[in-house]
């Protein structure tokens, strides 16, 4: 049935177009600034498209070891972190999804408490320090290797795997690890992909923990370098702008753009997993 287009439809279209513009524009603006010349940026005339078009900022990124090194650090931390986290989470959650597992109740209580109460910044820092992880990549991975909320989601998902499959495997003489590898993991690839994505995004974006735990400059991941660029003029006072010490706007915006680029490239393919993760959380098992 074809209904005619009403005033409501037009207004709705206009509102959503405005929403679309407001969402896209800041990102577009970052790209424009990164491609504009310094004079044009400082004159404040860059608004809708790059002016004084050039790639100087990007050349500078790939010419300076500082940003490139931070970039590769981020890639390494995210890749290794995500793999470790997934392995830990899967292995940890599988026994909890088994209804008659003897420790199911106590461990569920143990992990649920941590959702509501934590030791806080300094005590956690002291433990990380005490376990000798400070200033190493592992300080960003091990202290948060299991995300409780995602673990509970995955447990709920695992509980949905039919018990008959499990029984059949036992009769065939499979051990628990084998059942996990051959039945549970293949059956939950989409849920696992979702959790891995959320974890990878979290690791890629985190700046606060690395800035606390990592002390050597050459081990810092990209977000911390970005934060430092940002902090140089965060007070936005006129003096700091005149000092000439700050990172050129173009370079800063180019770094920002490069940092979100991998995500932007994969986003269209990954979006359905993100959405799935959200609705997976909404439907409580």
């Amino acid at each position: 049935m074809k209904r005619k287009i009403t005033v409501f439809d037009c207004v709705n279209f206009l509102i959503l177009s405005a929403v679309l513009f407001i969402t896209i524009y800041p990102l577009w603006y970052v790209l424009c600034i990164s491609l504009s010349s310094t004079e044009m940026i400082n004159s404040g005339t860059v608004t809708l498209y790059p002016k004084g078009f050039n790639f100087a900022a990007y050349k500078q990124i790939f010419g300076t070891s500082k940003i490139l090194r931070a970039y590769s650090n981020s890639v390494v931390y995210t890749a290794i972190g995500t793999m470790c986290c997934m392995a830990m989470t899967i292995v940890f959650v599988y026994p909890l999804s088994r209804k008659n597992f003897v420790l199911r109740k106590p461990i569920t209580v143990l992990i649920t408490i941590t959702l509501y109460f934590t030791g806080g910044l300094i005590p956690t820092f002291l433990v990380v320090q005490g376990t000798g992880l400070l200033d190493s990549m592992w300080s960003l991975i091990i202290p948060n290797i299991i995300w409780t909320f995602d673990a509970i989601l995955l447990r709920n998902f695992f509980e949905g795997v039919p018990a008959e499959l499990h029984e059949a495997a036992i009769i065939d003489g499979a051990n628990e690890l084998k059942i996990l590898m051959k039945i549970y993991i293949p059956l939950s690839t989409s849920a696992l992909a979702t959790i891995a994505l959320f974890y990878a995004m979290g690791q890629w974006n985190s700046y606060l923990l690395p800035s606390i735990y990592i002390t050597s400059y050459e081990k810092l991941p990209l977000p911390v370098i970005l934060r430092d660029m940002l902090m140089e003029d965060t007070n936005s006072n006129p003096n700091s702008i005149a000092s000439g010490q700050i990172t050129p706007e173009a370079l800063k915006n180019a770094t920002m753009f490069v940092s979100i680029l991998p995500f932007l490239i994969f986003y269209p393919y990954l979006q359905k997993y993100f959405v799935k993760g959200l609705t997976m959380g909404a439907v409580k098992g």
């Binding site: 143990l110 030791g119 433990v127 202290p143």
Partner: peptide, 18 residues
């Protein structure tokens, strides 16, 4: 299987509470 996770929780979640 569950043990490494439990150890993680004890060290990095419960030790800070202490």
């Amino acid at each position: 299987l569950v043990l490494p996770g439990v150890i993680f929780y004890l060290i990095y979640r419960y030790l800070p509470m202490y």
